[in-house]
Write a protein that binds this DNA or RNA. Structure first.
Length: 803
RNA sequence: GCGGGUGUGGCGGAAUUGGCAGACGCGCUAGACUUAGGAUCUAGUGUCUUCGGACGUGGGGGUUCAACUCCCUCCACCCGCACCA
């Protein structure tokens, strides 16, 4: 008889909820472990089989840690602001609030049916005013410190969505959501000065235990480059312009300069005889979308302005060109071109027949740009130096002669923080009629979203909030009129600090009690999808560092250890998608196979970080394993098996202790697939054994309980226990039980296995060598050969070199 | 192009101070039980083989008594970035 998963899963889920089994004691005396999942956006589609993968991993970790005597914080919540709810509201006329509430209810039911050990008293929701009060509060602090500011920036305007998108929400010139076209448009926007934290965001990556690939992605995103700024006078003008270069050593080889098409000097310096050509070029560029600009980038384009810059180091005249391979958004929007030692400049110079002067030896600059190290030539006082020495010396020269200085530039830009949307946290700022601007005082927070019947975007770029009376305010003291900021925050805002609120979720007076934060931070393990490798994780680190600076949190970094779960693909090894019809719904699996089976299967599929295809056969196999456990321990009529005895069964002793060791270590390291396979080995041995030792059976149930908690609780209670298994002490292993008195030794001749012998584990090297050489089979094989050398590895093998 | 990663049976995957390649699961084969089995149990299952053995971890080369593991080189695929000066 197999177990009835529908009955027992329901039974234990109700038990846990009712008894608040997983309630966390904030100020417990125990050592603390904080295991965090990336909270989900509760979409209308409901839970996907990908969600439970990471959630099961942290749940296993949490459950094991509780049994090992730790106080565990393991919470769940909802990242519930965002575009889909608003889009749905626009399409159907329904309220995003109700829609969101409904989706959350579905997600919560689904998650609870999977038996995760969350403390539901700490559930949070980013759209709850009691929560976003503190999101807004953090914003006002950023504003006070000058880290939130308004700026006129060319933004990604998406006419179809009626909103501005962040760079990262634009993929190949189209909106990430919906794939609508995006154009550049200058608008006044709120920005957060994340660049002020660039160096610390980079440096502190050294302190965290994250996958190297994620750290690298963040490093590349921040994109720190060291170099110098060099100022160039323009022949015949008062003005000068500045370029950024990582290769100041090549300044003698700079033969022309290039300004970005958007550079403010372009119109000023263009000579009359080139005006027409330049304007034509600018027009062509401006009507191109970003996408087309990238597409056409294979062929470099540009025009000469007629103006000349003076190379400060040798006084030579350098023609100033305009080209769209120079980006206004990086560095200063202007470059010195050194075609001999930069591939892009080389290509451009070739096309427009500009001079190419070699200044670093080592390549053949008549064929291609040489970017490597070498000895400087044609470079006055730099001649004879190598690259690094020349860089230092040139910077010295520039600083002494007031022509430039050392400079560090980042690829990272400030964070475009405002959205022209209804369904987001209102930015708590009031614009007064006298032109000033103030933050909403803390006592007036939260600044709640008004209920609106019509939330269509105005189309002009303002958010739907502009259509509400809510925008109008009057200062009660001075009577001055004002208008509220109508922009709202991006979806990233709420997820930048949610992990802090779990620690003290109901605190009305502060974001969280500092004493409680001190207890729980930093987070011990954070698991989620790799799609958040840069944005969420970088933004959250930025806010955390800011909160650290203003004394709100006690740690520099929020997430000590990070892990990315892999994707679960469809059976055909393709991404699951509605259109392919290969989506697996967790609800169906819970009904057909049970939550324990789903959890077990997802953990057994492969390494946690690998992308693995779903397999219905594999799922059946997981269920079969649970049935085997059940049948081994429970009789047909539901009683404990008579095979279970108080006696120690020596044939199970070693495999039991091995299993405890391997499972404990593997779970600690998130190697669930191998830990589970060891438990399968134990059950296989259990079937072969004449009788089962009760201690081993109970130890096994404890070890399977983090993976398959419902069946474990049921077995535990049927074996006569009245309390939950959740806080039973985790089994420990005895090192002395892991080694046999006899070990099998491999005998090799020339590295090939020729025989295997059982010998006592304490045998000496000399004895082992003797036994090996005297073995019948081996001596036969060695006949007529000379033994040259014998390598003995104690307890493992003997390799005989003979020919 | 740059950065990171992966490559092992029919399939998912094990195996790292270099020491028995293929644990465990799926699938498959045979047998047992059975009216029946897409249930369960038992045994087998890398390839080739003249049954001695030979070969085998993407290809080629190297170091070593010994290489999935270390080094060189090439190939394929995946992820991220992409004119970042």
């Amino acid at each position: 008889m197999s177990f009835n998963h529908r009955e027992i899963e329901k039974k234990w889920q109700e038990y846990w909820l009712e008894k608040k089994t997983f309630k966390t004691n904030t100020f417990s005396e125990k050592e603390k472990v904080y295991a965090l999942d990336m909270f989900p956006y509760p979409s209308g589609a409901g839970l996907h089989v990908g969600h439970p993968e990471g959630y099961t991993a942290t749940d296993i970790f949490s459950r094991m840690k509780r049994m090992q005597g730790y106080e565990v914080l393991h919470p769940m919540g909802w990242d519930a602001f965002g575009l889909p709810a608003e889009q749905y509201a626009l399409d159907t006329g329904n309220s995003p609030k109700e829609f969101t509430a409904k989706n959350i209810a579905t997600f919560k039911r689904q998650i609870q049916e999977l038996g995760f050990s969350y403390d539901w008293d700490r559930e949070i929701n980013t759209t709850d005013p009691n929560y976003y009060k503190w999101t807004q509060w953090i914003f006002t602090k950023l504003y006070e410190k000058g880290l939130a500011y308004m700026d006129e920036v060319a933004v990604n305007w998406c006419p179809a969505l009626g909103t501005v998108l962040a760079n990262e929400e634009v993929i190949d010139g189209k909106s990430e959501r919906g794939g609508h076209p995006v154009v550049r448009k200058p608008m006044k926007q709120w920005m957060l000065k994340i660049t002020a934290y660039a160096d610390r965001l980079l440096e502190d990556l050294e302190d965290v235990d994250w996958p190297e690939s994620i750290k690298d992605m963040q490093r590349n995103w921040i994109g720190r480059s060291e170099g110098a700024e060099v100022t160039f006078k323009i022949d015949g003008f008062e003005e000068s312009f500045t370029v950024f270069t990582t290769r100041p050593d090549t300044l003698f080889g700079a033969t022309y300069a290039v300004l970005a098409p958007e550079h403010p000097f372009v119109e000023k310096i263009v000579t009359n005889d080139h005006k027409e050509e330049v304007e034509g070029y600018l027009n062509k560029i401006q009507t191109k979308s970003d996408l087309e600009r990238t597409d056409l980038a294979k062929e470099k384009t540009g025009v000469f302005t007629g103006a000349y810059a003076i190379n400060p180091v040798n006084g030579e005249k350098m023609p100033i060109w305009i080209a769209d391979y120079v980006l206004m958004s990086y560095g200063t929007g202007a470059i010195m071109a050194v075609p001999a030692h930069d591939e892009r400049d080389f290509e451009f110079a070739r096309k427009f027949e500009l001079p190419i002067t070699e200044v670093v030896t080592g390549g053949d600059v008549s064929k291609e740009a040489y970017t490597g190290d070498g000895v400087l030539v044609n470079s006055g006082f730099l001649n004879g130096l190598n690259k690094n020495a020349a860089i230092s010396k040139m910077i010295e020269w520039l600083e002494e002669n007031n022509n430039g200085s050392r400079k560090i530039t980042y690829r990272l830009r400030d964070w475009l923080f405002s959205r022209q949307r209804y369904w987001g946290e209102p930015i708590p700022i009031i614009h007064w009629e006298d032109g000033t601007m103030t933050a909403v005082p803390e006592t007036d927070l939260p600044l709640e979203l008004p209920t609106m019947t019509e939330i269509k975007p105005s189309g002009t770029g303002e958010s739907p909030l502009a259509n509400s009376d809510w925008v109008n305010v009057v200062d009660p003291e001075t009577g001055m009129k004002g208008r509220r900021e109508t922009n709202t925050m991006p979806q990233w805002a709420g997820s930048c600090w949610y992990f802090l609120r779990y620690i003290d979720p109901d605190n009305p007076n502060q974001l969280a009690d500092p004493k409680a934060l001190q207890e729980w931070l930093p987070i011990d393990i954070y698991i989620g999808g790799a799609e958040h490798a840069v944005l969420h994780l970088l933004y959250a680190r930025f806010w955390h560092k800011f909160l650290f600076d203003i004394g709100v949190v006690p740690t520099k970094e929020p997430f000590m250890k990070l892990f990315n779960q892999g994707m679960i693909l469809g059976e055909g090894n393709e991404k699951m998608s509605k259109s392919k019809g290969n989506v697996v719904n967790p609800d169906d699996i819970v009904v057909s196979h049970g939550a324990d089976t789903l959890r077990l299967y997802e953990m057994f599929m492969g390494p946690l970080d690998a992308a693995v295809a779903w397999s219905t056969n594999g799922l059946d196999g997981a269920r079969r394993f649970l049935d085997r456990i059940w049948r081994l321990m429970i009789t047909e009529d539901g009683k404990p098996s008579e095979k279970i005895s108080d006696k120690i069964n020596p044939t199970l002793e070693k495999v039991y202790h091995e299993t405890v060791k391997k499972v404990t270590e593997d779970f600690e390291n998130l190697h669930f697939n191998t830990g589970i396979s060891q438990m399968m080995v134990f059950i296989n041995e259990g079937y072969k054994a004449e009788y089962l030792t009760k201690e081993y059976v109970e130890g096994f149930i404890k070890m399977i309980s983090p993976v398959a908690p419902h069946i474990a609780e049921e077995l535990w209670s049927r074996l006569g226990h009245s309390e939950t298994i959740s806080y039973e002490p985790w089994p420990i292993y005895d090192e002395t039980k892991l080694v046999d008195k006899e070990v099998e030794i491999v005998i090799q001749i020339m590295g090939k296995v020729r025989n295997k012998l059982k010998v006592s584990k304490d045998i000496s090297k000399e004895e082992l060598e003797k036994i090996a050489l005297e073995d019948d089979k081996i001596s036969d094989l060695l006949e007529g050969k000379t033994v040259r050398k014998v390598i003995v590895v104690q307890g493992k093998l003997v390799n005989i070199v003979a020919n």
